[in-house]
Write a protein that binds this DNA or RNA. Sequence first.
DNA 1: CGCCATATTGAAACTAGTCAACCGGAGTGG
DNA 2: CCACTCCGGTTGACTAGTTTCAATATGGCG
Lengths: 236, 236
Amino acid sequence: MDMRNPRTDFSNAKYDAAWAIRFDAPAGERARPTPASRHVTHPARATIVDEGDNAASVYEILDGGVILFKLLADGRRQIIELLGVGDVFGFAAGQTFDVTAEALTPVRLAVFDRKAAEADSEVRDRLFNRLRAQMCALHDHALLLGRKSAQERVATYLLRLVPGYSGFGCIGGTNGSVRVRLAMTRQEIGDYLGLTIETVSRAFSSLRRDGVIAYSKQDEVAVPNICRLCRLTGSQ
Amino acid sequence: MDMRNPRTDFSNAKYDAAWAIRFDAPAGERARPTPASRHVTHPARATIVDEGDNAASVYEILDGGVILFKLLADGRRQIIELLGVGDVFGFAAGQTFDVTAEALTPVRLAVFDRKAAEADSEVRDRLFNRLRAQMCALHDHALLLGRKSAQERVATYLLRLVPGYSGFGCIGGTNGSVRVRLAMTRQEIGDYLGLTIETVSRAFSSLRRDGVIAYSKQDEVAVPNICRLCRLTGSQ
DNA sequence: CGCCATATTGAAACTAGTCAACCGGAGTGG
DNA sequence: CCACTCCGGTTGACTAGTTTCAATATGGCG
């Protein structure tokens, strides 16, 4: 982590895009009709598309969570995007997918034929808008991967799962308390944050020791004071 | 860098998208007419848009190079995207830009009014297609930032500047030689690769000592054997 | 109850960061 | 024309943070 060359004239947190992660669809929207698409479901940890597969379809998440990842030849894995309800994937530059998509939870998807989606202006605009939001999330994630410490990464990750706080940092003096469900193993969190499983575990333990978070089940975390977590993200 | 948990059944390099970086427009295309846009130029290192600015316009690079970056409150910087001729930027999720754009070289841009660009289907499709290619580059870069060693990062960076090799790895047995111009300072390279200036410098020196690259001017690098560089990228 | 996968913790090793000195070319001014 | 300065780059010595390796704990599930 490079702490020199400080530019204290500028802080970006307040400008971050309003992306958020939800793994559960709002109850009322579960039956939302989606024209020009068919619906499919996948169980947790199922591979939805493989890197290199023919990119014939575009996917929108109706319910559940999905991870996109890439592998290096020797097996190192990086989870590139963490997607929730409303997010889209399957947009490829060429003829094939550049990432593998895997269901994080049981997931329900709307599948659009690529060409059909591009022809239907209403669908295309909706998918495109969502893609832009995900682009901003990718930008933030590059900042995290390139410049944040292990503790800052884990704090940022946790905050991203708090509804309404994703990418915003502490707007106002909200000292609220909240419970979040991770839905990811330590290995997945590590692969998402560019850390090892042990470093993730140590960061969780350290945050717990300091009272920033609390948990008994390891994937159900309570955040007693969101602002306090905020201050540890490095974005602040 | 986590070398455990190897999945040797899978290598992704051959599927990488065909993105490439060019800082100079092909001579014949310099006068390409661009309807529904005006043209502007910026000198090297000029700020084009600031994070937080009202996102009224979308930009396409006609000639030159542009970097997009974000800052943390304490001054740490991450260069998020490295853009060349044909690339686009300025798509925001909300009302404001989420990154700062700076000219890397003297640059010529086509500026589209955001709403006009979205209304013109020909323009919109062209920008959208380019955006998809950049999305793939971002995915690759997340893999680099999260999982590659310093030497692998620098090797990947250099290879990305070799025309035709960006993201492909060694297709065929091309042992060709080539010269590339970096157009970036060591500080910028460090901020792009998530490293310090010293680590970047050491990686360059090490590659030079090993004969993988050669240079006398520090931003003009000769690669005598591209395949050899390829093998150091980690993507293999 | 016991097994297996996942998570935690400890200690050692190592990579990259930090701090500091030095180099070398470009530009300036005596 | 040469000394001086400035700035980016290089190199060395040391440090900090993360990874690695290994042992132990925990939790879900048959």
